[in-house]
Design a protein around this nucleic acid. Structure first.
Length: 704
RNA sequence: GCCCGGAUGGUGGAAUUGGUAGACACGCUGGACUUAAAAUCCAGUGGCCAGUGAUGGCCGUGUGGGUUCAAGUCCCACUCCGGGUACCA
């Protein structure tokens, strides 16, 4: 199967600017964001990629990668797999067939009408004479509606009867065929069977247009009142239940008394046997429109010959580079600026045949889908990347990026990578093994009581409250994205100038979990700046440093620090790794002295976080450059062993006192020790304990 | 509407996945140093109550229930906030 094809696609076109607009540029009222003039739909020949062909593989691959579940869910929803059946309905009095997709073939008995999308090709053919005008007018209106109008605002259902009827294949009943824009041409077959008793949208439509609602399901698990209403067809029920009114001698199908799953299997088997339908899987994901009408972007290496042949250029003729243009204005009829590139545009082959180059260019995805592969071998002039480099580096062990890429970049590049894998160009099926979504760093901003945002340079602080420096109005401090208009942008260069690069880096890691969205505070930077200063002073001042054997408490704390930092780095919990380093430093400062060996070992733990300062400590101790080449220290489990534990002793779950006991003490003895403790009597209050729970090295709980 | 997150002191956040809630840091209070300020150092700091005092008690992880010897952590219902999505048959 060819993965790319060239065909008509609908695009938004602004006749004022004479350009094709992206969806985001089209406002809800159907006008162009930039110029305010209305946009129209227009057909343009475009390159499309058949990404749904990879839908199953894209779903299956999600099970093999370590990604946040939320992102996986978003991709699954985007792919939107649904299993159901395609069913054929005969149009009464025509030799036409309307094919529909449904996830609920079991509800065929409840189908009381059908709906075609306004763009459906059968609409004109089956509309009766007396309805032609109304239907044509409805189609025009639907075509003018923007996508948003058609979806968001159109809670009120609209539609028009075509005058024709279809035959319900399960019972031979004639059901009216309507046209309505709540059915989309781009999904399924662009036509549906409507079951108002069991589909909310159909229920609303049927109510609006007085179409019969035929109950076919008894919701046996619902409350009595709901059940009664549903069985009378007064309420819509989308959950499971027991089928009623679902048999007919017309086709011989009977699913009365069955529940949803059995109803589906039996109906599908019946449809397949009669040749009226088949089981079918549908995806929400559509073909991917890959053409853009812009100058910037990779040009398609394609020539359109005068005889109609569309030729893809040979590899050896690549790369096809963009021509230098004096004028970047769009070509006619929404064509890209390349349509103006005279010399570049026209080609003649050896036989004198004339051709024109493709003027569309590729979207930025063409680069972002595989840039990580180029990164493995960026200076390779002969090929995109060597097999060796790809094999060595791929797949990406840890990909860090924002959650906003969840369904576009991260899905497109997975698709791209799988295609390359199938072509034998890359050696793995998935590009990114682990994915991590870092949070955004925000900043404080200020707003008035009316919600108006106030730029930070107009804000005065007094006693923890904030005021407008001109109006004196009291302001509320809020957290918002950094923006020029709010004047709350933090320039990293300034932070580096005032506090140093190590402080900037350390603060960003210390301010909270990597995935959290959190506001920048200058006081926070001061905090880590202070820590770095304390550490630097303590570990470099000669009076603090000794060569004797290290104090066991300090050794223990050092090894705890190595262990915690190592584990936290692996888990990307940098904030807690840093707090452990602060604890170690505080311990040393309290002790007042430290062994030289401990000081340089600590410098090696600190080095990945604050490389400059760690290097200073390292070199002041006469160690050879550079600490960057030193391995991360290893901890020794021996030093971390505990032989006593201070047990928290609680009565009925309430902590009452603490008791230090050897960890080796058997449970029976612990029980005795606890009961003999002077404070125990007070809480036992003369009574006998019901139960004493001892969790070794954790807790003691006495139930009274 | 649906899907995905989240809610812990004055603030940013810890909490070995059911076992001492508030680590670490900011801020604040008091003290030392200083002519003074900054910087630095020391001590205290969840709330309420009792006591001159060491100390002791009660309450506390958005709300209301539940499971458990034990709940920030698990279950049920809900509130609020953030992000995504939109008639997908």
């Amino acid at each position: 199967m060819r993965l790319a094809y060239y065909d008509n696609a609908q695009v938004w076109y602004c006749e004022h600017d004479k350009i094709v607009c992206s969806n985001e540029e089209v406002l809800a009222d159907g006008t162009h964001e930039k110029c305010g003039n209305p946009v129209v739909k227009r057909n343009l020949k475009q390159w499309m990629l058949r990404i749904p062909h990879y839908a199953e593989r894209l779903l299956a691959g999600l099970e093999t990668v370590e990604w946040p579940e939320g992102i996986k869910d978003m991709q699954k929803n985007w792919i939107g797999k649904s299993t159901g059946a395609e069913v054929d309905f005969q149009v009464d009095g025509h030799d036409k067939i309307i094919r529909v997709f449904t996830t609920r073939p079991d509800t065929l008995f409840g189908a009381t009408y059908m709906v075609l999308a306004p763009e459906h090709e059968l609409v004109n053919q089956i509309t009766t004479e007396d309805k032609k005008e109304d239907v044509a007018s409805y189609k025009r209106k639907a075509a003018l509606k923007s996508d948003l109008d058609r979806t968001d605002l159109a809670k009120e259902k609209t539609g028009e009867f075509t005058g024709s009827y279809a035959i319900n294949p399960v019972n031979g009943e004639k059901i009216p065929i309507w046209v309505a824009d709540y059915v989309l041409m781009g999904y399924g077959t662009g036509a549906i069977m409507a079951v108002p008793s069991n589909d909310m949208r159909d229920f609303e439509f049927a109510t609006e247009f007085n179409i019969p609602i035929k109950p076919i399901l008894d919701p046996d698990e619902a409350d009595e009142e709901t059940r009664a209403r549903v069985v009378k067809g007064e309420e819509c029920w989308e959950e499971d239940g027991v089928f009623i009114n679902s048999s007919s001698s017309f086709g011989g199908l009977d699913i009365n008394g069955l529940k949803k799953q059995d109803g589906i299997s039996k109906t599908v088997a019946w449809l397949e046997e009669k040749g009226l339908g088949t089981e079918m899987i549908n995806y929400k994901m559509r073909d991917w429109l890959f053409s853009r009408q812009r100058y910037w972007g990779e040009p398609f290496p394609v020539i359109h010959w005068e005889d109609g042949e569309i030729e893809v250029m040979d590899d050896h003729a690549l790369p096809l580079e963009l021509p230098k243009l004096a004028n970047y204005t769009p070509g006619d009829n929404g064509e890209s600026p390349l349509a103006n590139a005279g010399d570049w545009l026209s080609v003649t082959d050896a036989k004198g045949r004339k051709g024109r180059r493709e003027t569309n260019t590729m979207p930025q995805w063409a680069g972002s889908c595989w840039y990580y592969l180029r990164f493995t071998d960026a200076r390779n002039d002969d090929e995109p990347f060597s097999k060796e480099a790809e094999h060595y580096w791929m797949p990406v062990d840890q990909y860090i990026g924002g959650a906003e890429h969840a369904v576009l970049h991260l899905l497109y590049s997975r698709f791209w990578h799988k295609v390359l894998y199938d072509l034998g160009i890359v050696s793995t099926d998935e590009p990114f093994t682990r994915l991590f979504n870092q949070g955004m760093i925000l900043a404080f901003a200020y707003e008035s009581a009316t919600g108006a945002k106030v730029a930070s340079d107009l804000v005065k602080e007094k006693d923890g409250k904030y005021f407008h420096s001109q109006t004196g109005e009291e302001l509320k401090q809020i957290v918002a994205k950094m923006s020029k208009s709010l004047k709350n942008v933090i320039n990293p260069d300034d932070v580096v100038k005032n506090y140093g690069a190590d402080s900037l880096r350390l603060y960003e890691m210390f301010m909270g979990p990597l995935e959290a969205t959190k506001p920048w505070t200058e006081l926070g930077v001061k905090g880590v700046f202070g820590f770095l200063g304390r550490a630097y002073r303590f570990f470099t001042e000669l009076k603090n440093i000794h060569q004797d054997e290290e104090d066991p408490g300090i050794t223990k704390s050092l090894h705890q620090t190595i262990k915690k930092a190592q584990q936290d780095i692996e888990g990307l919990h940098f904030n807690t790794a840093i707090s452990q380093m602060m604890i170690f430093t505080n311990n040393c400062i309290k002790k007042g002295k430290v062994n030289k060996q401990s000081a340089t070992t600590f410098a090696r733990v600190l080095a990945p976080f604050a490389p400059h300062l760690a290097e200073e400590i390292w070199s002041i101790h006469g160690e050879p450059p550079t600490i960057a080449n030193q391995p991360f220290p290893e901890y020794n489990e021996e030093y971390l062993k505990e032989d006593v534990f201070e047990y928290p002793v609680s009565f009925n779950g309430k902590l009452r006192f603490k008791l230090e006991l050897p960890l080796s003490m058997p449970e029976d003895e612990i029980r005795q020790q606890v009961l003999d403790h002077e404070s125990a009597a007070k809480w036992l209050n003369g009574g006998e304990p019901k139960k004493i729970i001892v969790v070794k090295g954790r807790i003691i709980n006495i139930v009274i």
